[in-house]
């Protein structure tokens, strides 16, 4: 239970930070032309990133001891990347079901995968470094 609390806390925290980071990265890359105001996006990217981080952090707390990888940050990068890929695959299924409404974009996908990798790395470092904090 303590591990779950730690996973959720650090997952939520790194998720919010990564959400904001990807907002700035997207403003730089222009991969998607943002439609909402900066203030609104600070909120939605924070919430969205935070939720994504909570799910992955919670999952990490449960599975990390079973993974055959030594380094914790590497484990986190693998799991966070894996979860992103799962959602992306589910998205492809949706695209198949409703081709008018859903379609993918390679630039956005690459940026999204980078988001998951950055988030996983951040979470992993927080977990290792933050032993005394949480």
């Amino acid at each position: 239970m303590e591990k779950l609390a730690k996973g959720l806390t650090l997952g939520g925290l790194s998720g919010v930070l990564s959400g904001w980071l990807i907002l700035f990265i997207n403003m730089l890359t222009g991969v998607f032309v943002l439609e909402m105001s900066f203030g609104e996006n600070l909120l939605t990217f924070g919430i969205g990133g935070g939720l994504f981080g909570l799910v992955c952090g919670g999952l990490m707390a449960v599975v990390h001891e079973k993974l055959p990888i030594k380094s914790f940050p590497v484990k986190a990068v693998v799991i966070f990347g894996f979860v992103w890929v799962l959602f992306r695959l589910a998205g492809i299924v949706l695209s198949g079901l409703e081709p008018h409404r859903f379609h993918g974009d390679i630039g956005q996908s690459l940026q999204g995968f980078a988001f998951a990798i950055i988030l996983g790395g951040m979470f992993g470092l927080f977990w290792v470094r933050g032993k005394k904090i949480v």
Binding site: N41, T44, F45, I92, S95, F102, D105, F115, A116
Partner: peptide
């Protein structure tokens, strides 16, 4: 919507 596109989830 902006968040979804920025992290590469498929949309319209």
């Amino acid at each position: 919507h902006d968040f979804r596109h920025s992290i590469g989830m498929p949309c319209h």
